[in-house]
Design a protein around this nucleic acid. Structure first.
Lengths: 122, 122
DNA sequence: ACACTCATACGATAAACGACGTACTACGAC
DNA sequence: GTCGTAGTACGTCGTTTATCGTATGAGTGT
């Protein structure tokens, strides 16, 4: 077998992760949705790409997951035929403490405002 | 003078500010630098565009300030011949609590790591 | 071997972006 | 008025981006 295809994905080391890169990765609605989904999972738990329903084609989905991985936001490992995706909580937390929490809390608050049209308090 | 040019800039209302828009606006190094500069000023204090030294031309500077304004990150008001820029702390704080702080804290931490090359701890 | 599923690779395309230069407007000072 | 300064508008150029379609590979089950 000539140079067997490496089934290990390239991930940026923590010191290669940039704030701008992370912000850019999260500035796309589709990617923010992916991250929001992964955020709800348990620590170190992962999900295959197909676990998230997106109104885009598979190739575009692959593209977005790749952007997230190359920005250092998620990790991807092959597990059988699927590829498990997980947030890099530990690395991001060490590099940018509170950043992910603030962004996803802001995102959650936004969705509350939008999803619940006009619920008067009590 | 037919239809005098309006010297008031358009700003998005708070409900028009999107998280993605803010993240995208902050995902550019130049714009992040601008925001970092404005962040150090006092509450509601502003600075003209020319107060920040950037290695780009004036037209590009105008472009970046406009992106920040249209994303709802800064406010711009004419004051004589200059245009004062200020962070929209209140609006952003109400919409996305802690977001700006987390981003700028992350940015500050990053700069500390980079600016101090190899200071061994004690 | 075969089919099926999950995901990738490659190529194309249209849109957005960052940077620039030049020409212009608005304001204040002289 | 004239001049300088601060910033805008517009057009351009090259790069990146988001999307797609089609073809392909890697793994699992029959």
């Amino acid at each position: 077998m000539p140079t067997a295809p490496v089934r290990v994905l390239e991930h940026p080391a923590p010191e290669e992760i940039t704030l701008e890169g992370v912000l850019h990765a999260l500035s796309d609605p589709t990617r923010l949705r992916i991250v929001r989904f992964l955020w709800r999972l348990e620590e170190d738990e992962g999900a295959p790409c197909s676990a998230i329903e997106l109104e885009i084609t598979k190739s575009t989905t692959t593209h977005h997951f790749r952007v997230l991985r190359e920005a250092g936001v998620i990790s991807q490992v092959y597990r059988g035929t699927a590829k498990m995706n997980a947030l890099r909580r530990r690395d991001l937390g060490a590099l940018f403490p509170g950043l992910l929490d603030a962004i996803l809390a802001a995102d959650a608050a936004r969705h509350e405002r939008e999803d619940v049209p006009a619920r008067s308090p009590a």
